[in-house]
Amino acid sequence: MAVNGHYVVREARKGKDEVQIARILSECFGPVTPGQLSQWMWKPEVRTFVCEVDGAVASHINVVFKELHLGEGVYSKTGGIGGVCTCSEFRRKGLITSLMRQTLDYVRNSGVSNSGLYTGLMLPAHRIYERNGFCDVTTMSSYVKILDFAYAFRLWLRDINRDIKVSRIAQKTLQGWNRTIVFQFEEFGAQSFYFNRGRFHRVRKPPKNADIVIATSLEMLFRATQGEFRFEEATKTGKIQVKQGTDADLQMLRRILTRMWNE
C-alpha cells in the first residue's frame, strides 16, 4: 500500500523537527521530550533521517557509526541503526522501507561496508530488516533480581501507563475498554486494578466480581511479556492461570502488558 500524498526522505533539521520526532519516538519507545532528544540527536556522530508526508514528519531513523571487533584485533566501522519508527497513522505504507533504503545508501556512500541494529523478533519491523538484507546474529537476554516485588510490579504498571499516554494507537485500541483486573501473585499476594481511560488505577480492596482474574508468579508474567514464551502458550500450559476473563479481554490485557498494538 502506498502512502497518499507527497512524501520526502530528508535529513532532520535542527530546531525544526525535534517536537515531531519526539512525538513519534514516544509513541514507539516510551516517553521522550524534545529537550532530551536534542541532547543526543545533534551529537556529531549521530545522523538523523526522517520521512515527511505532506510537511509532517511521519518516520524516523538515526545512524551512529561505531567500530566493531570482527576478530583478530580487526575493527570494522559499522552503521549502527536505531530509533526506527513510524507514526501510527502512517504505518504499513512503505515509509520505513523507503527510509531504510536511503539510510543504507547513506551508510554505503559514507564508505561503510556494514550495518547493525537491535530489534525484537516479534516486531513487524523484523521482516522489513530481513528484506533489507539484515540477518539475525544473536538474541538477547536479561538477568533480573526483584528485591521488592510489590514495588517492582507497580513500577512496571506505571511505565505501561506512561507509554499508553503518549501512544495514539494504544489510546485508540483501548478506547472504551474498562475492566477490573486482579493479579494473584505467588510472591506477594493479590493486586487489584481498575483499567479505565487507558491506564491502570490501583484499587485497595479487591472487587467482588473482577472481569479478569489471573494467578501466576511475577517471574512468569515477566517472562511472558519479555517474549520468552507467548502469553497464550503460558495460559495453556498453566504458567499463567486464567481464573476469570473472556478470550477477547485476555487478548487486550496481553496487548497492554506486552505493549504490542499492531498484530
Partner: peptide, 13 residues
Amino acid sequence: IKTDGVFMYAITD
C-alpha cells in the same frame, strides 16, 4: 529471562 530482542547485521558493500 530470554527476551525477543535480537541483534541484526547486514553487509551493505
